[in-house]
Every structure is written in structure tokens, then in C-alpha cells.
Amino acid sequence: MKMIYILTLVPFIGILGFLPFVNRIEPYVLGMPFNIFWMSMWVVLTSVILGLMYKLDPRNREGDQE
């Protein structure tokens, strides 16, 4: 259960915590300025993290009614 709580914080740290260091244009990645690329990457990672949380969460193994 504890792992899930840590995972919850990861997107916040990845996006907001790193913002002062990634607020730059060079290098371009996938045609995007670095800051825009960084944020887009984290949007995708957030989906991955939420998927992990879903798998780890015992509540989701029950039926549809809870």
C-alpha cells in the first residue's frame, strides 16, 4: 500500500519540482522545445504511473460493486 502513496507524488515532483531546471528551449526533442517536451513526456508517464497504481491497489481486484 505504501508504494502507491509514493507513486502518487512522483508526477508532481517530476513536473513541478523539476520545472526550474527544465525551463529552457535547447535541446529540441521530437521537434519541441525542451520544456514542452519535458512536460509532454511527464503527461505520458503520469498515465503509466496511474496504471501501476491501479495494478498495485488491492481494491481493484474486487468486482465492479464495492
Binding site: V43, V44, S47, L50, Y54, E62, E66
Partner: peptide
Amino acid sequence: SGKVFRKNAIISPIYTL
């Protein structure tokens, strides 16, 4: 059900892209 929301949370960020 409540599970609906946990399921939707996974796909939603990519949708935001």
C-alpha cells in the same frame, strides 16, 4: 461504481495530450 474512476484515471492524462 468507485472503480470506474480509478480505471479512468489511467487513460485520462494521455487524452489530455
